[in-house]
C-alpha cells in the first residue's frame, strides 16, 4: 500500500490522471471556453438573467446526482416530473390555501423527499432495477401532474419572481442553485453520509460487510434527490409565471446528459454536485452560443450528441491511462 502511495504524486502529474481525479475538469474547461466566447459575442450577456436561465437545468442535474452516486445502476428518471409536481402543488394547493409564502419551500422539499423515499424504497426493498422503477415513477408523476392541472395555471406576484431577477443584492438564479447545493453539502459534509454514500456506490457488498446500512443510505440518496428537485419546480414558476404539466418530461434526458458531460461516473461511488453544475453550465452556454451564432436548432442536436460521446470517451480513456500507469 505504501509503495502505491509513494508513487501517487508521479501519477498525479500526468494530465489524464488529473482529469480522472477531478472528473468535472473537462466540463469546467469547456464551460469556461464557452463563457469567454459568449462574453465576446454577446455584449449584453447579463449575469443575473443567465444564472436564472441555467438554474432549472442545474437543479435537475444536481437532483440526479445522489441516486447515481449510490451505485448499482442507480438513476432517477423521475426528477423532471417531480419538479413539475412541486410547481403545480404550489400553484393549485399551497397558494390558494394561504401557504404561498416562503414556508412553501420547505413544505415542497418535504413532499419531494417523500416522493424520493418512495422511489428509493421500491428500489431497495423491492430489489428492482432503479431505471425501471424511476421510469414507472416518471409515468405516475406525469399522470399526477396532468391530474393536478390539465391546463397551465398562471401565477402572478409571488415571491418566486425573484428567482428570475434578483433577491436583494444576490442574483435569484444563484439563490435557486444554492438551496439544493446547500442541502447536499450540509448532509454529505457535516455528517458521515457523504463517505457512506461513496462506499455504498463504490462496492455495496464490501460496504454491507463493513456494517454500512446500505439500504438506508440508498433510500436517503433518492430522498435527497427528491428534495432538491422540488426546489426546481418553484424556480420554473419564477421564470415562466405559469405552472403547467407540459414541462413534466422536459428535463429528464437533458439532466442525465448534463451529469454525464460533467463527468459523474454512472457506475456510482464518486463525484458530486460539482459535476452536475459544470455539465449543466456547459450545455446551457453551448445552447446560448449556438443561438447567438444563429446556428439552427437542428445542428444543436448533432453537436450536443457528439459532445456527449466525446466527454464520456475522454473520461473512459483517461481512466484507462491511470489504470495502465499503476
Amino acid at each position: 500500500m505504501s509503495a502505491v502511495d509513494q508513487r501517487a504524486p508521479a501519477i498525479r502529474r500526468s494530465p489524464g490522471a488529473h482529469f480522472t481525479r477531478h472528473t468535472c475538469l473537462f466540463a469546467l474547461a469547456l464551460a469556461t471556453a464557452l463563457l469567454i466566447a459568449n462574453l465576446a459575442l454577446q455584449p449584453r450577456f447579463g449575469v443575473t438573467a443567465q444564472l436564472a436561465a441555467v438554474a432549472p437545468l442545474g437543479i435537475a442535474a444536481m437532483a440526479s446526482v445522489p441516486s447515481i452516486m449510490s451505485g448499482r445502476g442507480g438513476i432517477d428518471l423521475s426528477v423532471s416530473p417531480l419538479m413539475t409536481l412541486s410547481g403545480l402543488l404550489y400553484a393549485t394547493r399551497l397558494q390558494p390555501g394561504g401557504l404561498g409564502g416562503y414556508v412553501a419551500l420547505p413544505l415542497l422539499m418535504l413532499v419531494g423527499a417523500v416522493v424520493g423515499t418512495v422511489t428509493g424504497l421500491l428500489v431497495v426493498v423491492g430489489r428492482l432495477q432503479p431505471i425501471v422503477v424511476s421510469l414507472a415513477m416518471f409515468f405516475v408523476l406525469t399522470g399526477l401532474d396532468l391530474k393536478l392541472s390539465p391546463s397551465p395555471t398562471t401565477i402572478s406576484g409571488s415571491w418566486m419572481a425573484g428567482f428570475a431577477g434578483s433577491m436583494g443584492p444576490v442574483p435569484g438564479g444563484l439563490v435557486a442553485l444554492a438551496v439544493p447545493a446547500a442541502l447536499w453539502l450540509l448532509v454529505s459534509r457535516l455528517t458521515t453520509y457523504g463517505s457512506l454514500l461513496r462506499s455504498v456506490g463504490g462496492n455495496d457488498v464490501t460496504a454491507f460487510t463493513s456494517g454500512v446500512p446500505v439500504g438506508a443510505v440508498r433510500v436517503l440518496a433518492y430522498a435527497l434527490g427528491g428534495a432538491m428537485a422540488a426546489v426546481g419546480g418553484l424556480v420554473l414558476i419564477g421564470l415562466a409565471s405559469t405552472a403547467e404539466a407540459g414541462t413534466s418530461g422536459s428535463y429528464t434526458l437533458i439532466a442525465i446528459a448534463a451529469v454525464a458531460l460533467g463527468g459523474l461516473p454512472l457506475q456510482g461511488g464518486a463525484g458530486g454536485i460539482a459535476n452536475a453544475l459544470a455539465g449543466a453550465a456547459a450545455i446551457y452556454l453551448l445552447q446560448s452560443l449556438l443561438g447567438v451564432l444563429q446556428v439552427s436548432q437542428t445542428w444543436l442536436q448533432v453537436i450536443y450528441g457528439a459532445l456527449l460521446v466525446g466527454a464520456v470517451l475522454f473520461g473512459a480513456i483517461a481512466a484507462r491511462e491511470v489504470k495502465k500507469g499503476r
Binding site: I256, G305, L313
Partner: peptide, 15 residues
C-alpha cells in the same frame, strides 16, 4: 470503453 449505454444511445439518438 465500458461506457454505460444510456449516455451513448442518448447521444446517438440526438445525432
Amino acid at each position: 470503453f465500458a461506457i454505460h449505454p444510456i449516455i451513448v444511445t442518448l447521444a446517438a439518438g440526438s445525432i
